[in-house]
Structures are given as structure tokens and as C-alpha cells.
């Protein structure tokens, strides 16, 4: 199964590398969000710094939905998903492969956006801010697992552009909250305050991942 997971993840990564529309688009959207919010909220840097973690992670959540939807749409075009579905020994490998690929993409997006926010808002990060790297990884796994579970059930729907954010934003709210709070704490140099949020992120990742493994075969079954 591990070989299938790696091969399926590489397939999605290769698609993205050949036409990097998802990651590039999500990064652009995130940057636009940061800049436009800066203009809308006014030049008060202290206020912008206070909302920056939440804003950055909200952009990353939208990126997760956008990128996850595109991966699912590509799979469903030209009956590619039917081939995929019938060719793997264990269909949970498709779920795990999708999570792995989406995690890699979201990790890239989140580190780039968080780095940009630090520069744009003149934030002097504490030395412990290096812990943002594993934080972004855990949050990316949680986001990817939640997105894959829901896109697999709703992805083929003609109204998915509306349904995916409606279904996903509330489900991913604890992830958004935990990632924002942990980011704020790490940038401020308070490691202790960030630890419970790390735990919540890990719990969300385990929950979505575990439930996804149990339900994927039913939710994503062919028509």
C-alpha cells in the first residue's frame, strides 16, 4: 500500500509541477488578501500585526480548498478517477496519497505566506519562530485531511464552488483557530502558550485522517 500511496502522491505533485496553477494561484490569492487587508484596515501596524496570523491562516484555508478542489477535478475529468479507483489494491491509498500531495503543497504555501506576512508587517520574529516550520506541517496535514474527506464526497457536484467552502470552513475552524493562536504565540516568543494549540492541531489531523481512512471508500465511490 505504501508504494501506491507514494506513487499517487507523486502523480499529484507532478501534475502541479507541470502546470503550477493551484499553488501559484493560491499564493497570489493569499498575497492579495494580505495587501488588500492592509489597505482596508488602515496603516496601524500594531493592529495589522494582531490580525496577521488569523488573516494568513484564513488565506491558507482558502488555498487548501482551492488546491484540493482542483486536484479532485483533474482526477474526475476524462474518467481518470475510474481508472484510479479500479487500479489500486487498497482504495485508502488514494486518500492517503492525496493527503500527502496536498500537505506538501499547503506546507509550501503556508511557509511562503507566513514569511511574507513577517516581512510586510515588519515583524521581528523571536528565535523560537523557527518552530513555525513544524507548526505549518502539522496544520497542513490537518487541512489536507479535512479537505480530501469533503472533496471526495462533494467534488463531483455541479455546485461544488459553493458547497465546498460551506462544508469545509466550519469543519476546519478549529484548525484555523489553533494554527492562528500558535503562530501568534511563536512569533511573540511564548513557546508554552503555543503547545496546547500544537496538540489541538495534531488531534484534528488524527481525527480527519482516521475518519477519512474509514469512510473514503464509501464517500468517494464511483457513481
Amino acid at each position: 500500500m505504501l508504494g501506491d500511496v507514494a506513487a499517487l502522491a507523486m502523480k499529484d505533485v507532478r501534475i502541479e509541477l507541470r502546470s503550477p496553477a493551484s499553488v501559484a494561484g493560491a499564493l497570489t490569492l493569499g498575497l492579495v488578501g494580505l495587501v488588500v487587508t492592509g489597505l482596508a484596515a488602515g496603516p496601524d501596524t500594531a493592529r495589522l500585526r494582531a490580525i496577521a496570523p488569523g488573516l494568513a491562516w484564513l488565506s491558507i484555508v482558502y488555498a487548501a480548498i482551492t488546491v484540493g478542489e482542483r486536484l479532485d477535478r483533474i482526477d474526475r475529468s476524462d474518467d481518470a478517477f475510474a481508472v484510479l479507483w479500479l487500479s489500486v489494491r487498497d482504495r485508502r491509498a488514494i486518500f492517503a496519497g492525496k493527503i500527502m500531495a496536498l500537505t506538501l503543497m499547503l506546507w509550501t504555501i503556508s511557509l511562503a505566506l507566513l514569511g511574507t506576512a513577517v516581512v510586510l508587517l515588519n515583524i521581528d520574529p523571536s528565535p523560537v519562530a523557527v518552530a513555525l516550520i513544524p507548526l505549518a506541517l502539522i496544520a497542513s496535514i490537518a487541512l489536507a485531511a479535512g479537505v480530501v474527506v469533503v472533496t471526495s464526497t462533494v467534488g463531483g457536484n455541479s455546485q461544488r464552488v459553493l458547497l465546498l467552502p460551506v462544508a469545509l470552513l466550519p469543519l476546519l475552524a478549529p484548525t484555523l483557530l489553533a494554527a492562528s493562536q500558535a503562530t501568534g504565540a511563536l512569533v511573540a516568543g511564548t513557546v508554552d502558550a503555543s503547545l496546547p494549540w500544537f496538540g489541538l492541531l495534531a488531534a484534528q489531523a488524527a481525527l480527519f485522517g482516521g475518519l477519512g481512512l474509514l469512510t473514503y471508500e464509501h464517500g468517494a465511490a464511483l457513481e
Binding site: V149, V150, N157
Partner: peptide
């Protein structure tokens, strides 16, 4: 959950999607 169920015409698919969202 209700919106998603309402948007799926196929009976079996509606039930499967609803069940996954209901569990998660």
C-alpha cells in the same frame, strides 16, 4: 449537511455523501 444533501439528485450518492459529512 442539509445543503449538500439537497444538491445531490442521485439517491445512493446523496446518502453516501450525507453519511460521511454526518460522521465527520
Amino acid at each position: 449537511y442539509i445543503l449538500i444533501r439537497g444538491s445531490i439528485v442521485d439517491r445512493d450518492r446523496r446518502a453516501r455523501a450525507g453519511a460521511v459529512i454526518g460522521i465527520v
